[in-house]
Computed example of a mutant assay.
Amino acid sequence: MKPFEVHISDEEVADLKARLKATRWPREEPRDAGWDYGANMAYLKELCAYWQDGFDWRAVEDEINGFDNFTVGIDGIDIHFIAEQGSGESPVPLLLTHGWPGSFLEFIEVIEPLAHPERFGGKAEDGFTVIVPSLPGYGFSGSPGKPIDCRDVAGLWRKLMVDVLGHERFIAQGGDWGCLVTSWIAADHGDVCIGAHHNMWIMRPPQGEGTPPPDAEEQAWLDGRAKGMARETAYQMIQATKPQTLAYGLTDSPAGLAGWIAEKFHRWGDTRGQIESRFSKDRLLANIALYWFTGTINTSTWMYCAIPLGESFSVPDGKRIETPVGIAHFPGDTFAMPPRQWVERAANVVHWTTMPAGGHFAAMEEPDLFIEDVRAFRRLIA
């Protein structure tokens, strides 16, 4: 395990600004298109102009380096992670896993309050030791060499938490891909994972012979989900089938990368059509710039390629996740939370909170609600 410090060279920053200045924009977009055809051109021009002349990457570096960062090789992959020792006599380790198109930066604002609540008017005994890794192929983590799925990552995270960091019991939390990673940690590693908290749910209950058909509420959710997936998941098809072709443009053009990622934050967050009601330009660009400077947009998509190669979306027939599961339902997420009974057929749900607001990027959109719900879940199980 080696200490790690983020520093992007002045030459790389200058190259980015030159590329932004030389952006070749599309000729036009449909009249009154808004965001319906993808990233809105007027907003993207505004965002890229700020990226060129106003955004301060060095401030992002300082924020990241304000925590203890490390890298460690696990199964041939260099894994980057933040580890913040919590306050109190025996802080419970908390593993936070991001998804796509996010990064470990999704959690940057909640690390300190989770680890040191007494600094924010809380009690030290509520502190967690917070571990935030970058998924393989993302950010400052190394490439897995070929697509791996969320169940594989769950095994890597067990080795990180237990073998590297020495935590014999911990809570896992995640959304997006991090949700599925967390589900498999709970399913396969319940001897060390004492609880799994989710702000999204992907895992399907067993579908084998003798299992009950969906009830009316579940069927309505399935029908709505199918319609939503048809509208919003073209990106999944290209990233699951021809990610290399996509990667040439997104790796070469910062404006292209910004459009590809910003559109997802606009559509998936509880933005109600106004992206900066949830995500400031600085927060958006910190995440986008991380992809740019690390050159990881290609390898970050490989997990989608593993979708047709594995069976990581369903609990095996005859099985159920018995590790205690907590659900934080943020209603503005494009990927709607299933009915509780659907989740309960797959897992031992002991905690369920329906939030008043917030969407897909929960820790960024509603950090206070996110923090309190994780704490409430911990009080139930540890």
Rank of each mutant, 00 (worst) to 15 (best):
R19S: 02
N40H: 06
I74H: 01
I79N: 07
F67C: 06
E29W: 04
L47N: 03
P26S: 01
K21G: 03
I64P: 03
A14G: 05
R19P: 01
H7F: 03
G76E: 05
L47D: 10
G66P: 02
V13A: 12
I79G: 09
H80G: 02
A49W: 13
V6S: 07
D15N: 10
E61V: 07
P26L: 06
S9G: 15
A42D: 13
R19Y: 01
D36S: 15
G34I: 00
A59R: 08
D62I: 12
V13W: 09
N65I: 14
T71K: 13
N69S: 13
P30K: 09
D56R: 11
S9E: 15
A18N: 14
A22M: 08
E28R: 09
R58E: 03
D36W: 10
A39S: 14
E63F: 07
E28G: 07
I77W: 01
R58Y: 01
A33L: 10
A14M: 08
A18P: 03
L47I: 12
W51R: 10
W51Y: 10
T23Q: 05
D56L: 11
C48K: 00
D75R: 11
F81M: 09
Y43V: 13
E12D: 03
L20V: 03
F67Q: 04
W35E: 09
W25H: 06
G34P: 00
I79R: 04
F67T: 08
D15W: 08
C48D: 01
G54L: 05
A59T: 04
F81R: 05
I64Q: 11
W35A: 10
K45N: 06
D10M: 08
F70W: 04
I8P: 00
A14K: 12
N40T: 04
W25P: 04
A83P: 04
D32W: 05
